[in-house]
Design a protein around this nucleic acid. Sequence first.
RNA 1: GGGGACGUAGCCAAGUGGUAAGGCAGGGGUCUGCAAAACCCUUAAGCGCGGGUUCGAUUCCCGCCGUCCCCUCCA
Length: 465
Amino acid sequence: MGLMIYNTLTRTKEPLETIEPGVVRMYVCGPTVYDKAHIGHAMSSIVFDVIRRWLEYRRYRVLHVMNYTDVEDKVILRAQELGVDSIELAEGYMHDYDQHLKDLNVLPASVNPRASTEIEAILEMVKGLVDRGFAYQVDGDVYFRVAKDDDYGRLSGRRVEEMRAGARLIVDERKEAPADFALWKAAKEGEPAWESPWGMGRPGWHIECSAMNLHHLGEQIDIHGGGSDLIFPHHENEIAQSESFTGKSFSRYWVHNGMLQFEGEKMSKSLGNVVTVEEFLEDHNGNILRMVILNASYRKPLKFNQDVITQAERAWERLKGALRPATPMPEAPEKVVADLNTQVEKTRAGFETAMDDDFNTSEALSHLFELVRGINQARDAGVESEPLGEAQRTLRELSEVLGLELELGGGIDREAEAFIELLIEVREELRQAKQWALADLIRDRLLTLGVHLEDGKEGTTWRAG
RNA sequence: GGGGACGUAGCCAAGUGGUAAGGCAGGGGUCUGCAAAACCCUUAAGCGCGGGUUCGAUUCCCGCCGUCCCCUCCA
């Protein structure tokens, strides 16, 4: 069947056919860096990270571009409020976001262009659009002439004449038509500005993505991604600009992630229901957010609340638990080993089928959990560490394709481990001597340091967290 | 007003024209000095409501109700 991708443009799943065999050119709209990022932004980055990892698993070379919008009304406004330079302000948030992506185990994009460093490409495009009659200049602003683009609206399914012009916005009388949008804006006093044929100014929001695509990936790309809130007007306008400029179709597949819902509403700054990435990572590790996301379809709205987090934490623990070492017993039945091997094969096949079907991570995870059960059953049956290890390697490998890090004992460094082992040894002596109070004291004290002791059949084991 | 989605057990959620994955919680058990954890087993939905198509629909079509997103900056 091959890899199927849901395309917003056609509202159907289509087989992936890339422009260049074996290569995927993917552009994802990144955040406007005017404030701390929230977990909705992170969701988008994680979704496209999983897509990218799956494409790479399928042997594609992925050229992955994600932009940072650092020249924009909100950035400028914020900088003026704080009395700082807007580009520097954006740079700070940009570096924060880079760090968040690392903490969330998101693979770095091939390129992270910024509006402020792409002015040349932007100007070239705006000029071209003016030359070809797709844009016009008014008082130092340049607008895209939507009427000139006959298939405008095909991504979002809108007809220009059906949109209630001026319902919620004040129509700029200088524009030829209400739907026309700015490619270039004349700069006001104190705003970042660059020289242009129309005077000092700065790019409009939509044009930077078109220009960056052209500059870094070429005239035609395979996948263009972003949040579903960008379908209109942003991506609609990108299509208009890019296709009018090149005369070629722009992106083959348009992929959009659903919005993260917090208490039934979209998480957004204007609603004030924001959980920043920083806040989330203070209380949880990045795998937990990823688990929340992987549990559901990337295209649907994602419910986010404390319950969902708790459930994801528990599920993640279960996944990790499967990596516990074997507890070999003399007469482990051979059938168990055979069943385990069968499960490994079934898991990989099911996982691949699920991921090929528009990145069905929820179903892919279900196959991982079936492997977890198989591993645990085999361990309980006393299977030797080698057949068990094989299954565990598969689990780890497939988890990594989803970007999950299952390694045990994270957060505790090597030197500390030796001391923990020592304490366990001492405590074991105390338990032999039935010095329960002292034994419990060690256990409790270690717990406050983030080390859990577990007394089992095969002795005491420990884990971090 | 227009455009786009969604509604599956207590919760999250996948999925299919022939009677529903997985996870969490719940119940039972194993282990244990106690505890915690872990593991095993297990209960639970007939798929928003009303019609239609069909031998048969949760899955297709129509209507209704409800929720969300977009039409202003937005991942």
